[in-house]
Design a protein around this nucleic acid. Structure first.
Lengths: 322, 322
DNA sequence: TTGAAAGCGATACCAA
DNA sequence: TTGGTATCGCTTTCAA
């Protein structure tokens, strides 16, 4: 290969890595030779010698379809532009020693960077390791140690609070709430937003209106069954994720309740699609894809900024109480 | 590291790779030392020396959320069990020289395996390269060279035909059809199934009932606008993907058509979710996750089988013509 | 069953 | 601006 261009192997390396101090003519000769021979440098060798891996990892806990899609879609372009591969490391929240597996993963791969989502994004051990190893990382929707490293999020507490107040302003007094998956800080933040709104409006909390979910369609449906089966059912239900809101909606339909006339349903929306697909749903639009894009930007620029992206409330149809 | 256990570096290598001919006592000593020192072998070095990469790639063209989620979910477990990382190589169908980018990707990574989805799964250049490089691969829903290598699919033609016949049996004569993304063979197969069913039942094809889509919610909605705006609108619409069917359903709702009383809507369903989430939809259940699991199985077992998984038609609500 | 030595294919540092 | 050489941390081959 290097002979074909009449240069040393080191010069080829310079061309590949776009280093300075290569005479244009030389560079051209090398590139010509590379093209002619269909030469592709070995990533394994470059990784070993250079101490880089040309790979970044997206570490997330079995996320919903839209969430995952948004993340990958947002990261894809920038990764390709940087010549870096995206490794998706999805793990089951329940079944693993949180962090252990991820740690050994990091140690072995010597990654060029990592994008972390909750709950792993809030594990100090993981962040410690990354810091020690000098691996840049960006956290999405972190809850703890907010000032640590770069992160991208929306104001979950504020969004849930605003949505709840909106429902209250429309006249709803009994508002069911489906809590997000345990262990996810956004779940707590959203719950707190809901509770604060009630408190501010002087509405006493009715514990029976609180249902635990786990971010899935099925868990939203189950929660709705409980809520709508109550002796005094709520006139509105606010689910803390889009998949759960869809589950609630589905059950409301099945039970013959008119949405949104008889019952208002609100949720979050990772993709702007939920509110389109399921008419009658009022949602907080969480721009996952934009968040991922921003995260990639921070990662490759090496910035340590803490970015809070704006959310938006998207309303479809009237949502006053029955 | 090797000193700590009092063995040569080679023996450590044997333990790591679980090779035979290591005395149990020696193995134990090495493992103890590895644990004590928190030793993690470098993937880059193992990859370079061993000619493997410990990585497989999922190559797919910007797929829908549920499709992607199903694929990754299906591959995840087996990859983890095999100690292999999953690289997601998603690319825009439109913007790239099909195959070129993927080829150079393959050449550089020296992958341990690849899972291919259409349309890349049907590119002979890509398969040729993989064969030459000795990289095992499994194709999902391939259309061309069906006997080449391992593959997993469902009978798309049969499914579309059966669904169409079912609609006809219910009394529908004017059945709109939303064609899938151009360049995807499954699009053609499903279209052919639809056409064959019409032919078999002696129904003349009305070209205005055929709409081109591109597998997205939006394109399904656009197609529905066209179809429902027709002077003589169809009494049923069959979309060749779940996202498009959802788009059709949404437009039908928006235009005040009662589903399924005034109009029947059918589609495919990659996750069993569409029919749950969107009541009134009759779907062909395509078990993407199961397909991915099977693909991983074939890949790691090195089998060259051609697997055709069964589909299922899931009906919700009556779908007779208005 | 274990070890010694020779790569794997690039990069990095220092000379030229 | 270019080249030589050690080096990265393992696996492979062959010998013991």
């Amino acid at each position: 290969m290097s002979q074909r261009a009449g240069v040393s192997i080191k010069t080829v390396s310079r061309v590949i890595n776009n280093e300075r101090y290569v005479r244009p003519a030389t560079r051209a000769r090398v590139e010509e030779a590379m093209a002619a021979l269909g030469f592709q440098p070995s990533y394994a060798a470059r990784a070993l010698a250079g101490g880089k891996s040309f790979q970044i990892a997206l570490v997330c806990s079995n996320p919903g379809p839209y969430y995952l899609h948004g993340l990958i879609g947002g990261l894809r372009g920038r990764c390709a532009a940087e010549g870096v591969r995206l490794i998706v490391h999805a793990y089951e929240t329940e079944t693993e020693e949180l962090g252990e597996d991820v740690l050994s993963f990091f140690r072995q791969m010597n990654l060029d960077g990592a994008i972390l989502t909750p709950p792993i994004a809030d594990q100090p051990v993981v962040l410690d390791h990354l810091d020690r190893a000098g691996t840049p990382y960006v956290r999405i929707s972190p809850a703890a140690d907010l000032d640590r490293g770069a992160s991208v999020s929306i104001d979950n507490h504020g969004a849930a609070r605003m949505m709840t107040r909106r429902l209250i302003d429309m006249g709803h007094q009994r508002i069911g709430f489906v809590i997000g998956h345990k262990g996810f800080s956004v779940s707590e933040q959203r719950l707190e937003g809901y509770l604060d709104a009630l408190r501010e409006c002087g509405i006493a909390l009715d514990g029976s209106l609180l249902q635990q979910g786990e971010f899935s369609f099925q868990s939203g449906a189950a929660a709705a069954e409980e809520l709508l089966g109550l002796r005094r059912p709520p006139t509105a239900i606010f689910a803390s994720s889009d998949d759960m809101a869809a589950g609630v909606l589905s059950v409301a339909h099945r039970r013959g309740a008119k949405v949104p006339d008889q019952i208002a349903i609100a949720g979050f929306d990772d993709t702007d699609l939920a509110s389109l697909v399921w008419p009658g749903l009022t949602t907080v639009r969480q721009p996952i894809r934009a968040m991922a894009e921003r995260a990639a930007e921070l990662l490759f620029a090496g910035e340590q900024e803490r970015v809070v992206l704006p959310f938006e409330i998207i309303e479809r149809g009237s949502t006053g109480p029955a």
